[in-house]
Structures are given as structure tokens and as C-alpha cells.
């Protein structure tokens, strides 16, 4: 069970959280092309390495936040608030 460091509540067990998929996916305006809308809906990188992803502390403070996780090791490199940029970690994405 992962230990997830909620930016608001501190480290908590994974079962308190809901996964929210890849982070920093921008929802386009309603007038974009079909291809852009399809990419927004369905195209993801499936990163092997450091992935920016969303979590919600659903059984805690209820807040969404972002995390950087190395998908090879499950090691978290950073936790940060929604709306803030992806932190520099010095590790390849």
C-alpha cells in the first residue's frame, strides 16, 4: 500500500485516496477540432518513468492534488497543489 503525502494532511495510506489519472491534461475549449478533442479524451503517454498524476484525498480532506511518481519503482518525487506547475526534479520524465 503506497504512502501518499497529501499536501494538506501529510502522509496517509493509499486506501484513503482515489487515483485521478495523468495530470496537466488541459481541457480544451468547446470549439477545438475533433482530433484535439479525441486526444484530450483518450490519448495518454503511459509513461515508464516519472509520471505527473492526480490523486484525490477522498477519505480525508477531499482535495485533489498532483504527484510525481516513478512508475518503475512507485517512488514519489514530489507532491504539489492543483494549479501549480510540475516541479523540476532533475530526473528524466
Amino acid at each position: 500500500m503506497l504512502l501518499i503525502d497529501c499536501p494538506y494532511c501529510g502522509p496517509r495510506a493509499e486506501i484513503e485516496f482515489a487515483y485521478g489519472g495523468e495530470a496537466h491534461i488541459v481541457r480544451p475549449a468547446a470549439d477545438v477540432s475533433e482530433a484535439e478533442w479525441e486526444a484530450f479524451l483518450y490519448l495518454r503517454d503511459n509513461t515508464k518513468g516519472v509520471l505527473a498524476e492526480r490523486w484525490r484525498h477522498s477519505h480525508g480532506c477531499g482535495r485533489f492534488f498532483n504527484a510525481l511518481r516513478d512508475t518503475r519503482t512507485d517512488r514519489f518525487l514530489a507532491f504539489y497543489e492543483i494549479g501549480t506547475p510540475r516541479p523540476e526534479t532533475g530526473e528524466a520524465a
Binding site: 485521478g20 481541457r27 492526480r54 484525490r56 477531499g62 482535495r63 485533489f64 492543483i82 494549479g83
Partner: peptide, 8 residues
């Protein structure tokens, strides 16, 4: 609802 409210 919380997702769109908090993130969009």
C-alpha cells in the same frame, strides 16, 4: 463535481 470544481 469536485474534480471539475477543484481542477477546472
Amino acid at each position: 463535481m469536485e474534480d471539475y470544481l477543484q481542477t477546472e
